[in-house]
Design a protein around this nucleic acid. Structure first.
Ligand SMILES: [Mn+2]
Ligand SMILES: [Mn+2]
Ligand SMILES: [Mn+2]
Ligand SMILES: [Mn+2]
Lengths: 220, 220
DNA sequence: TATTATTTTTAGACTTATCTAAATCGCTAA
DNA sequence: TTAGCGATTTAGATAAGTCTAAAAATAATA
């Protein structure tokens, strides 16, 4: 049975995201940028993760996550997202405050803690940012979703997730009144700059830049 | 502002308990036994805690906890006990399973997490083992309480806490039907071996050895 | 009080995770 | 085809927390 330290779990989770769920190879510098640690530290960590066979690592050529690595990354992601649900739903944190705390909580080692928490929360399928929560086997419920700026003029849909979970972006969405679950309709699109205007819940109209719209994911 | 690592917090908490809340001095070996680490490791840690002035440490002569140290220990204890309440009340852990997990959770660094959790739980005053939860200023609600074996024959009272929180002891209490909050009456005492017999909630009679009775705390 | 026993500390080693500085590799542009 | 640049790894250092073995200090006992 492979066990990972908290640091190893964090690196593996970052690698899973960078590799787009295992589809792409990842470089040392990619990981360095994501983890905000120096490339030298990353090299050392990649060697360790390679020895534990959660990644396939070739010196100077980057890495690929293994099937075992994917499984473990998904379990870490599962814990992280379940804790985020708890913090927002039960403790009334706002969705821009939970990432760091959930990270710390997700490293607490206990067989039953996450099962019981999951049960307590009613087996949530998505986290506060709309990201799917893998089940205990690592299976993920995929929802087809598109960036808001790619939705056709006149179409309706529902905001289901955000690509950017940074506090700055999330607080901006709070300010303008966009939220996960909102029903939207695209009422104007400007080709020139890619900006869009949407109607939220048939009430409020919001104008947003292409940049913002590209980070909002919609299910049509 | 003094900050402690998780290990330092754990040592300081142990020291607080060993010193009976600051009343007694504590030796290196005491701490070693409590923490299950070697005396050599303890010496090193005591030096660090001394430098941070949470204890007053004289080589070869043991230590005394300082006022600042007491405050910090009480905050760690507060977090630990609040998490224990959460695990038992909300996640349905049994009271013999929560200590380790609560320990890990209590080291998560976040200004607001414990405040919000405390609020969510309705500001509990006691943990699942009947131990008082210090408030955010470190103030503790003291309840006068006596070991069950020191209660007079014929007296009534209420079980309010346990001295021994080991899983083995707690599971034994579960088995015989003793629990925090139970109304009891001492219906027999044997001078010879110190054993007692009690009536729980005017229904069930329980016979217990002096050893067991001495670890049950009663408010008369 | 002198010797022995116990307690405590020091010295040196190991592990994990990080850094800086220096060396090395691989790719690309001349 | 090779010089040079950027990416990557290696080497060596640091910090925290632990250990074992040995030294030193204190306490107990004869
Ligand atoms: Mn997150
Ligand atoms: Mn999230
Ligand atoms: Mn406890
Ligand atoms: Mn407790």
């Amino acid at each position: 049975m492979i066990t990972l330290t908290s640091a190893e779990e964090n690196y593996l989770k970052a690698i899973y995201h960078l590799s787009d769920g295992g589809k792409k190879g990842v470089s040392t510098n990619d990981v360095s940028a994501e983890m905000k640690t120096k490339p030298a530290s990353v090299s050392d960590m990649l060697r360790k993760l390679g020895e534990k066979e959660v990644i396939e690592y070739r010196k100077y050529y980057g890495l690929h996550i293994t099937e075992e690595g994917k499984k473990m990354a998904l379990q870490t992601i599962r814990k992280h997202r379940i804790w985020e649900v708890f913090l927002v739903q039960k403790l009334k944190f706002s969705w821009d405050e939970v990432h760091e705390v959930a990270d710390a909580l997700s490293h607490v080692k206990s067989k039953s803690l996450i099962q019981r928490l999951d049960e307590y929360l009613g087996y949530p399928k998505f986290d506060p940012h709309g990201d799917p929560i893998p089940d205990e086997f690592g299976d993920v419920r995929v929802r087809p979703r598109l960036p808001l700026n790619e939705i056709e003029l006149g179409s309706t849909g529902q905001i289901v997730a955000v690509k950017d979970s940074s506090p700055a972006f999330l607080r901006y969405l709070d300010k303008v009144g966009a939220y996960i679950g909102a029903r939207i309709k695209v009422i104007d699109k400007t080709e020139f700059d890619g900006s869009v205007e949407i109607l939220v819940d048939n009430k409020k109209s919001i104008f947003m830049s292409k940049d913002v719209a590209g980070n909002i994911l919609v299910m049509v």
